[in-house]
């Protein structure tokens, strides 16, 4: 498929999803979530065990869209300047030129983000939140289409610096891929016998298509009642037992935006309760701080969110 003619927002989604499906077998839910985050302008944190395809998913997305893509492998010795860039002295004209770091791109894959030091992490997270970086007192705006996919290994792994809750809050969504079914794993083996399917992928959407998709998402309608439902659900996480820190209003905003994106993907002009319920867990769970004692007794953030969903009456 070529990008000569412009696609409708929904077609953009379908095209990209189909492209990713070629590489990522059996990850339709993850793909849908990832694209919801892309379309609503949020960033995504993938958390899973090594080898489940986090990086592949990110790369496939990047390749499917005809935009700039950069990747940073986070290591403990990575410095903030390695991400945002550094002024370099030019011998010829005897001036400093800013050498742009990998953050000046459209899609940035921050691989194993929790292996870098907190200082470096926060340099990236600032860029994510503000859409700009400040170097030597000079503001440098990032591209209009700027999307970060960060991956991290589960926090308990060795050699990791867990992201503080304030920074977790910057990610619109966090979800995992999980192991796929046996048949699908066989299909992966077959696919990759000769060639990685990733190399066969061709871009199917342009930057303009993606920006149009984002604008279209903001136009999806949502009723006051559902807004209230979102706020009720988010607020309920604050008072839930075993939760030290509940979700922020930023979480409510992210729920609404991603729900709008889901509605658009489904070809609906308005958000339904299902769309809200679909995104609540990946959007809210990672923002909660669970009381250590409750955690020890088996309470998980996801469990809290699901309990809240079960408890708060859904509009119908």
């Amino acid at each position: 498929m070529t990008t000569n003619h412009s696609l409708s927002p929904r077609e953009t989604y379908q095209a990209i999803a189909a492209n990713i499906e070629k590489v990522m077998k059996g990850q339709a839910t993850a793909t849908r979530r990832l694209l919801a985050a892309v379309a609503s302008g949020g960033h995504v944190l993938l958390e899973d065990f090594p080898g489940t395809g986090k990086t592949t998913l990110a790369k496939t997305l990047a390749r499917s869209i005809n935009v700039q893509f950069k990747r940073v492998q986070f290591t403990p010795d990575l410095l903030p300047s390695d991400i945002v860039g550094v002024p370099v002295f030019d011998q010829r004209d005897r001036q400093f030129h800013f050498h742009e770091g990998p953050v000046f791109t459209n899609i940035l894959l921050a691989d194993e983000i929790n292996r870098a030091s907190p200082r470096t992490q926060s340099a990236l997270l600032e860029a994510m939140a503000e859409g700009q970086v400040s170097v030597e007192g000079e503001r440098r705006p990032l591209a209009e289409l700027f999307f970060v996919i960060a991956t991290q290994n589960p926090v308990e792994f060795r050699g990791t610096y867990p992201l503080p809750e304030a920074q977790m809050d910057r990610f619109a969504m966090q979800f995992e891929l999980g192991y796929v079914a046996a048949e699908q794993e066989v299909a992966i083996l077959t696919d990759q016998m000769h060639n990685h399917p990733l190399h066969l992928i061709e871009p199917c959407a342009s930057e303009q298509d993606l920006l149009r998709l984002r604008r279209a998402v903001t136009e999806v309608r949502i009723s006051e009642e559902l807004k209230r439902y979102i706020v009720d659900v988010v607020a309920a996480t604050r008072g839930a037992s075993g939760v030290q820190l509940g979700a922020s209003p930023r979480a409510s905003l992210a729920v609404m935006k991603t729900a709008q994106a889901m509605a658009l993907f489904d070809g609906s002009g308005f958000v339904t309760p299902e769309h809200v319920q679909e995104v609540v867990t990946p959007v809210i769970a990672h923002r909660l701080v669970i009381d250590p004692q409750a955690k020890f007794s088996g309470l998980t953030a996801r469990g809290v969110v699901q309990e809240v969903l079960r408890r708060i009456p859904v509009p119908a």
């Binding site: 339904t272 309760p273 319920q277 079960r310 408890r311 708060i312 859904v314």
Partner: peptide, 8 residues
């Protein structure tokens, strides 16, 4: 159920 959406 209370927290169950219609399609669910």
């Amino acid at each position: 159920r209370e927290g169950e959406s219609l399609r669910e």
